[in-house]
């Protein structure tokens, strides 16, 4: 427990440092924040423009899709702000910075995640919250549904955290492949913005059993909307987000340990 407290405290100390550094250039900070909000908002504008040509998409209304979009985006953007820097592992190995990190009394993963902490990503979180808020009236809220939402958001952050770390760890084997992870992190968030009904069954299966991103928003949102899975997945999947998150944490821990063991300094 003391270890966790130490890790969290160290994380915030490093993050604070980078927040202060960013605030030294307020104009840059604000243009990048606004730019970030706009660029993520375009995903949603595209879906919104699509609806000028159709009335329903994969059997869902625009607001229902906004709900799916909101839940996955909030989880993804929070995870991205907290641990997104981990995708720079390859660069840290190449420059020898990882060696320096290993000599400090703070866990390497904490240092990697907190490095270059970007407060401006709060803007993208706010954008996701705004879309969610617009979608929220489509749900008939009950205490159970609210509980499932909270569970889904927390699990969603953990799931995306694991995706970031697992796929970035691959860079211990292939230094230049940072873009490979993007297919699963940013690609994962993108695919979850759409209703699963537009994808073939095999894709949805893979996103349930191999890379369980459907537990971030698809199954929980089915419960919020009072629907059953069109692909016939068991109803309890709609509450199983924490289980999926827990399983991923296990896999991620293994991969990370394996990667770190495999690490050899460039010696430069």
């Amino acid at each position: 427990m003391a270890e966790v407290a130490h890790a969290v405290r160290s994380y915030w100390l490093i993050a604070l440092l980078w927040i202060r550094a960013a605030m030294a250039y307020p104009l840059s900070f604000w243009t990048m924040t606004v730019g970030g909000v706009l660029i993520t908002f375009l995903d949603f504008v595209a879906i919104w423009l699509m609806f000028s040509h159709i009335d329903s998409y994969g059997g869902f209304t625009l607001r229902e899709i906004a709900l799916l979009y909101g839940v996955t985006s909030i989880a993804f953007r929070v995870a991205d702000m907290l641990v997104g820097s981990v995708e720079k592992i390859g660069q840290k190995v190449r420059t020898g910075e990882l060696d320096a990190m290993m000599s400090k009394p703070v866990p390497v993963l904490v240092q990697l995640c907190a490095d270059r902490f970007e407060l401006r990503r709060l803007g993208q979180i706010a954008q996701a919250v705004a879309v969610f808020a617009w979608a929220a009236p489509t749900v008939e809220w009950t205490p159970q549904r609210l509980a499932v939402l909270v569970m889904a958001l927390v699990s969603g952050v953990v799931i995306y955290f694991c995706v970031f770390v697992t796929f970035s760890t691959i860079q211990f084997w292939t230094l230049d492949a940072s873009e490979f992870a993007n297919a699963f992190t940013y690609g994962g968030n993108t695919i979850m913005q759409y209703p699963m009904t537009i994808f073939p069954r095999e894709v949805v299966r893979s996103l349930t059993y191999l890379l369980p991103l459907t537990f971030v928003n698809w199954y929980p949102c089915l419960f919020l909307l009072g629907l059953h899975d069109p692909f016939g997945a068991p109803d309890w999947f709609r509450f199983a987000s924490p289980l999926a998150a827990l399983a991923l944490v296990g896999v991620t821990t293994l991969v990370w340990r394996q990667g770190l063991r495999r690490y050899r300094s460039t010696g430069s």
């Binding site: 230094l175 492949a177 873009e179 297919a183 690609g187 993108t190």
Partner: peptide
């Protein structure tokens, strides 16, 4: 390797 990773990512987005 970076190019191959990029091709992979472009393709994943293309499929989605």
């Amino acid at each position: 390797v970076a190019t191959l990773a990029g091709i992979f990512t472009n393709s994943v987005f293309g499929i989605i």
